[in-house]
Amino acid sequence: MTGYIAKIKKISKQILDEGTVDMVIGFRKGTLALMNEPCFAKTSKAVDDFVWDGNCGINLANYLTSRKEKIGIIAKGCDSRNIITHIIENKIDRDQLFIIGVPCKGMLDRHLLSAKFPDEILNVSESEDAVIIKGADYEETLPRKEVLQENCSVCIHRNPVIYDELAADLVEEQADLDRFEAVRKIEALNAEDKWQYFEDLLATCIRCYACRNACPLCYCPTCFVDESKPQWVGKGQDTTDIRTFHFLRAFHDAGRCTDCGACVRACPMGIDVRMFTKKLEKDCFESFGWEAGLSLDARPPLDTFNPDDPNDFIL
């Protein structure tokens, strides 16, 4: 995956020079380890700043919402699924986009790694199967699959599902995974323990809304938590209000979430907010056989009625 960047740059420069697009959205190297910064290039010179490695976990589909230009965009599997969702929801036109597909082998879990190495990580380098972490007075090599974001380790759509050109050959998809193990663990708890689980999960939430704002699905002009007429939810640090924000946001993502993990990656407190959305992803999959963002032609399950829809919850 580390070798993709030459091809990414080549394609980006070509589509800029030929005038196919006005800008290309990608990543540039961050100023600290495990971080890259989303950026745009409007000239082929600016493309030289682009990087591609395991620290490109932010979902770039988030930067497309309602843009008017012709845009080239670098898309991993999850990004491409959110691009499809964006197109279905009329947030961008397919004709505006030139999608540079990037077959992905998973992104590095910055929360996990910085917890594992309390002494500042100064440099991270990657090979196909290993990650080398360097600090001022240590160096450690870890198997790549052990330090992936959790959503990446249970991902079954690493290859982009929509693209105009690929940056590399498609990768083998992971199979025989238990994608919902974490959800089932919560499902097995009794009601009180479930409540406590989410209380503990959200205990350090500062309500900065990084999870919401990093999410390509959260593009409402005014989010329900920001509404004041009527005011749906209190704006302070009361735990009821914090929880209301999180679970209602998850509901709004039902049948749309691609489990890209941008929310968790963005959270400054490292809260695993996927534990809300993952349940809805599981329900949508089990009830409707639905996975979001796989096709431009299928309507999402909460958008359609089918006489076969499960209705055993109706008394």
Binding site: A191, K194, W195, Q196, R243, K279
Partner: peptide
């Protein structure tokens, strides 16, 4: 809602 700890029913 049940998943979050509201009692079944």
């Amino acid at each position: 809602m049940e998943h979050m700890g509201i009692e079944p029913g």
